[in-house]
Computed example of a mutant assay.
Amino acid sequence: MSAQPDLLYSEEEEALRAAVRDLLADHCDPAGVITRTESGAPHDREAWKALADGMGLAGLLVPEERGGQGATHREAAVVLEELGRSVAPVPYLTSAVVATEALLACHADDLLAELASGRRIGALAIALAIALGVAPGGDHRAVRAEGGALHGELTGVADATAADVLLVPADDGGLYAVEAGAVTVTAQVSLDLTRPVAKVVLDGAAARRVGDAAPAVRRALRAGAGLLASEQLGLAEWSLTETVRYLKERKQFNRPVGGFQALKHRLAQLWLEIVNTRAAARNAADALATGSADVDVAVALAQSYAAPVAVHAAEEALQLHAGIGMTWEHPAHLYLKRAKADSIAYGTAGRHREALAELVDLRAP
């Protein structure tokens, strides 16, 4: 029988949270993030350098003997909660989690150490909307390996415009490392302006085989989906906190709007949903960290629940901020767009519910 998961935060995790929150307060204030999305260069390189190089957070999931910090998914989850609270435009999920997890299943410790140090940014070259369980043979086979070079076209690759190296699954079952300069990366229209997607064209790009695609992609997508729930938790918590704060200040009929019973009920319901999301996200992070036999169940459960809650929280924030919430200057739209984009990342909630039903043998009739 599996050990009981520990859903509480340790003192070290709370200290990590405080440090990351302080750093993001300096680098990712709402006005600055909005300005950056308008600049044509949405990724915040300074914030990434501070997180990855200054604090060493890019290598949390990498063992010390392979060039990382030797921490666990629990610590990475805390970082992602704070990144979600700030909708920080940094490639942490895509590089420090998804690409790193793919490399942990391979034999490319030189490249893994570079990603762990933050000196280079990696991206797994599959569409952000690809779900766990879609084995190489679907979209992954869009790339053809021929004589040490890759040919093909991929769309919807998150943070490809920031990546220095792309990890590309190919039709021969291999996972290949390709330098970003050897491919053509074209930004695509993206709902989430803080995590842009791009089209990647490989036209005879020189590639280095680093391992087998199937186990690497499965490991990467499982960790990505499981820890995405922590980002969604942070996003939802910000939405609730800021909405409560605004409703205490906003007055109608000479009394705070937050005192109206109908709004209290909506906020109380949202608070309950967020509490449950925290339990599901922490359970997934703990299962990934401990290698629990129930990790697939924990990840599917977390994404089944967290995705719709994050969208609901962001929608409530925008609506309850009334007219100001509809303006470009207020950051509410960034959170709603991130929540909507996250709701299809690494599989929709419906897809995860289907997987969960199979895992616990409760298939629909």
Rank of each mutant, 00 (worst) to 15 (best):
A131M: 03
V189N: 03
A162I: 06
A355M: 11
A284D: 08
L191Y: 05
L24Y: 02
L247A: 05
A177G: 06
V20S: 01
G350K: 02
S86G: 04
A339H: 05
R255G: 02
A332F: 13
E101L: 10
L175A: 09
G350L: 08
V309G: 08
A145Q: 10
L124N: 07
L175E: 08
A142T: 08
V97T: 11
L24K: 01
A177W: 07
T327R: 07
A280R: 07
D29F: 07
C106A: 14
P169V: 12
A214V: 08
L301F: 11
Y9V: 08
T72E: 08
R245F: 12
L23S: 12
R245S: 10
E81H: 03
M1A: 15
R74T: 10
G70P: 03
E237N: 02
N283D: 08
A198G: 08
V98R: 13
L57A: 00
V90S: 07
V200A: 03
W238G: 11
A357K: 13
A229M: 01
G174P: 03
L247D: 11
A302R: 06
Y335C: 08
G67F: 11
A213I: 09
A149W: 00
A99R: 01
C28D: 10
E354C: 02
V157Y: 01
K199Q: 13
P215T: 03
V297M: 03
V134G: 01
V295T: 10
S2W: 04
H352W: 11
A289F: 00
E316H: 09
E329P: 04
P365W: 03
E249H: 09
D110Q: 12
V210F: 01
T35E: 13
E75D: 07
Q319H: 10
S117G: 12
G118M: 04
W238F: 12
D212T: 14
D171E: 06
E82S: 04
V78W: 01
R363Y: 04
V134C: 06
P196D: 05
A96D: 08
A223P: 02
A182H: 12
R21P: 00
R266S: 10
G68K: 04
V62P: 14
S95R: 01
D212C: 07
A339P: 01
V197W: 04
S95K: 03
E65T: 11
A310M: 01
E65G: 09
A298V: 02
A307S: 15
E316L: 15
H43S: 13
R45E: 15
H333Y: 06
K340E: 14
R278P: 13
R208C: 02
A108S: 15
G67K: 12
A129G: 02
P169E: 07
A280Q: 12
A41P: 06
K248D: 13
G174C: 08
D109V: 03
R209P: 00
G234I: 13
A364V: 14
A77L: 06
E316S: 10
K49F: 12
V295K: 11
V178E: 01
L166H: 01
E65H: 15
A129M: 04
L7F: 04
I126S: 09
A289C: 12
Q269R: 15
A47R: 05
P30N: 06
A47S: 09
R266V: 14
S304P: 02
P308H: 03
V189C: 00
V98C: 05
T161W: 00
E358G: 12
A285Q: 10
P89K: 04
T155A: 13
A220S: 09
A279K: 14
